[in-house]
Amino acid sequence: MTKDTMSIDTSAELLENDILPMIREVHTDPDVPCASQGDMPKALAEPVAKKSPAQWAYERIIMYIQNFEKQLDNDHEVGMGLAGGNTGVIRIEGLGYYDPDIVTYYGTSEAGAKTQLIQHVSQLNVTLIASPKHIDQPEPKRIGFRLAAGLERSEDVTT
């Protein structure tokens, strides 16, 4: 486009641009639930342009954690494995972000040590893992459902 030409978007194009990006998943087993199935929280329907990269990453991670937990039995909780380093598996007990570009995970290591991972959104790389719940714990803790509840509120999702 040159300086002398102007591009005008239609109302539909403007709306579509606010909704993008889209989510798409395909699995070998058609019964595996996709994160895109079901109702999406209000926070994910907000225009992406109004969010920092950290907030946008945080909200999508929550959806993936919640979807992963839906597939677990009562003997397992969500944990995460990290690429690079010798961190091992962390039981996810909290998730947050710091604008504009930091996502942080709180949890406990396999050895029982309190753990916090601080990650730049450009380095985001997490593997969700089914971790056995503690033996003395009657029910698994489902952090994804608690986090997703925050995405339904109209105010800041981290409060």
Results as ranks from 00 to 15, higher is better:
76 H>T: 05
109 S>A: 11
115 T>K: 15
108 T>Q: 15
38 G>W: 09
115 T>V: 14
103 V>I: 10
109 S>V: 04
105 Y>H: 10
95 L>Y: 05
45 A>Y: 12
87 T>G: 14
64 Y>M: 10
60 R>D: 06
56 W>T: 03
115 T>M: 15
96 G>P: 01
102 I>W: 05
37 Q>H: 09
62 I>G: 02
80 M>K: 07
82 L>K: 12
116 Q>M: 14
95 L>E: 05
100 P>K: 13
56 W>A: 15
42 K>I: 12
86 N>I: 02
91 R>G: 11
59 E>L: 03
84 G>M: 10
104 T>V: 04
51 K>M: 14
98 Y>S: 11
54 A>G: 06
93 E>A: 06
38 G>M: 11
39 D>T: 10
73 D>R: 03
81 G>Q: 13
77 E>V: 02
57 A>I: 02
57 A>C: 15
71 Q>C: 11
47 P>S: 07
89 V>R: 10
90 I>M: 15
47 P>H: 05
99 D>H: 08
108 T>Y: 02
34 C>L: 08
112 G>R: 06
92 I>C: 07
83 A>P: 07
85 G>E: 00
46 E>D: 05
102 I>L: 12
67 N>C: 14
56 W>L: 13
74 N>H: 08
41 P>R: 04
58 Y>P: 00
78 V>H: 02
97 Y>L: 02
85 G>H: 01
105 Y>E: 03
90 I>H: 08
49 A>W: 06
38 G>Q: 09
103 V>H: 04
45 A>R: 14
48 V>T: 12
97 Y>G: 03
38 G>C: 12
73 D>P: 00
89 V>G: 10
91 R>E: 01
38 G>E: 03
48 V>G: 08
77 E>S: 02
44 L>M: 13
94 G>T: 06
42 K>A: 15
50 K>Q: 08
106 Y>P: 00
92 I>A: 12
76 H>F: 15
55 Q>W: 02
84 G>R: 12
80 M>E: 11
35 A>S: 11
72 L>H: 00
112 G>Y: 03
86 N>F: 11
70 K>S: 11
80 M>T: 09
34 C>M: 09
112 G>H: 04
33 P>F: 09
103 V>Q: 04
41 P>T: 05
102 I>R: 05
32 V>T: 15
99 D>W: 06
71 Q>F: 02
46 E>Y: 04
50 K>G: 04
57 A>F: 01
83 A>E: 13
104 T>A: 10
66 Q>I: 02
38 G>Y: 09
55 Q>C: 06
68 F>N: 03
98 Y>L: 08
98 Y>A: 14
54 A>Y: 11
112 G>A: 04
78 V>P: 00
87 T>N: 12
37 Q>R: 07
40 M>K: 10
59 E>N: 01
73 D>Y: 00
35 A>C: 09
73 D>M: 00
37 Q>L: 09
72 L>M: 00
109 S>L: 10
105 Y>S: 03
97 Y>W: 07
64 Y>Q: 10
106 Y>R: 05
84 G>V: 00
60 R>S: 07
61 I>Y: 04
112 G>W: 01
89 V>K: 13
43 A>K: 11
32 V>E: 14
93 E>W: 02
60 R>Q: 14
97 Y>N: 06
78 V>T: 08
75 D>L: 12
51 K>C: 11
86 N>A: 09
77 E>Q: 14
73 D>H: 01
87 T>Y: 12
33 P>N: 06
90 I>Y: 04
93 E>G: 15
